[in-house]
Write a protein that binds this DNA or RNA. Structure first.
Lengths: 237, 237
DNA sequence: AAGTGGTCTAGACCACGCG
DNA sequence: GCGTGGTCTAGACCACTTT
């Protein structure tokens, strides 16, 4: 799996230009036809790339005018397939591993039904805290099945990113996710990690990531302090 | 605007079959090629319809096998373009208007920037409570600009649905939304309407709906009691 | 080998915004 | 009138799953 799909190339190209500021906020990106000639492809493929940028809230489309870079507000665009690192705009983001990956029992807080193979196997579990501008904002618990993928130590994470590691070292891609959202009161553990009073309202996001390997799912439970950085989501078409 | 777009026809066709149980949970729907011949169209169009069903969590795709109806769990699939009525599975849903549509000032709780025309105009405001199985689950505040659309009385809502009214009587379609999620403590008003203690964790969803009329946006702020019915979201590809 | 969904090509016509 | 994005056609080849 060496070759990047064409629509992914276009997606990455435009995304980088946006993130680097080459395409500034509120400005129009090149038209679909221009991107077509630039990448020697057709509108179907270009539109597929733009559609993904649309879903992730990087651009918005205006019929008859063009596609415009969205003015990014102070909030984190979660709720997309990609993990945390791919979803925050330009804040200073920092991740600390609070519990190293280790073999453990499946935690009953996981609300998604496990497959038979997963149930028979133990899980690999690790915990991280995500900081934005030096404040702890998200506590993240992660599990995956030991039968499907070996234990990966956190020092082996590529650029500190678990998803990037899966992609580059194991050729595993995330192809989708299901999420369930609840508002809960901070437990002692959540409060301690997010430096917030016990009982404060916290957004709990339970996620099941689907991967390109049909026997491997990733399960995450995020606890988000949304008081300063709410979660963003957009939906089009 | 009489004619329904073809991909929308296919979308509605499959969605109805799923909701009526003709395509049961966990079963495969007709293949893309079958749908092509049924509707005398090409895969591009069929795939566009299925993509929307995918985004809204009605189906999932399995490469090499087919598209399967998703087993629906006890949660409300919000966070889509469509409003509440289009997003809950098969529970008994009931809506009560708690504040009739009337002209009022814009409420500063709206986090989205208003256009100049909107600022110059007053807003139409109404409030509803959504019940699932006779429990109040969502308190909904809604605004839109008076300059863009007249006041519509709640007794004129088609099937009690505001969005259906817009579509059928005013030819206005919802084409997208932006959302921002926060976990908050229930205020007195929220607590009273949702029959829950003051201070309980509540999921607040602020939404800006884009419509086919470029000068008209709909603004909603939902307060959701997620303790029994969490909010669902899925994301693919 | 046959059928499925995933990607892609090379066009077409339409609705919309703007000068 | 022209360029933009929105919809649609009619194919092609690929990767994957099942028989």
């Amino acid at each position: 799996m060496e070759k990047l799909k064409k629509y992914k190339q276009i997606y990455e190209f435009v995304k980088k230009k946006i993130q680097s500021g080459t395409y500034p906020e509120d400005h129009y990106i090149p038209s679909e036809n221009e991107l077509c000639s630039k990448f020697s492809t057709t509108r179907t493929t270009v539109r597929k790339a733009l559609e993904e940028l649309l879903k992730e809230g990087f651009i918005e489309k205006e019929q008859g005018k063009g596609s415009k870079v969205i003015r990014r507000s102070k909030s984190i665009g979660l709720l997309t397939v990609r993990g945390f690192s791919g979803s925050t705009p330009d804040y200073e983001v920092l991740t600390k591993i609070t519990k190293e990956p280790k073999i453990s029992k499946w935690d009953p807080v996981i609300i998604f039904p496990l497959s038979e193979e997963e149930k028979k196997s133990d899980s690999i579990y690790f915990q991280r805290v995500r900081y934005i501008n030096n404040k702890p904002i998200v506590l993240e618990n992660n599990w995956y099945s030991q039968h499907a993928l070996e234990l990966i130590k956190s020092e082996d994470f590529v650029d500190g990113s678990f998803f990037k590691t899966l992609s580059q070292n194991h050729y595993i891609e995330i192809i989708g996710s299901e999420q369930e959202l609840r508002s809960i009161a901070a437990t002692k553990e959540v409060a301690k990690n997010l430096d917030t009073p016990v009982g404060d309202p916290i957004l709990q996001i339970s996620i099941r990531f689907k991967t390109s390997r049909s026997d491997l799912f990733l399960y995450s439970i995020l606890y988000c302090n949304t008081s300063e950085y709410p979660i963003r989501n957009s939906y089009f078409l």
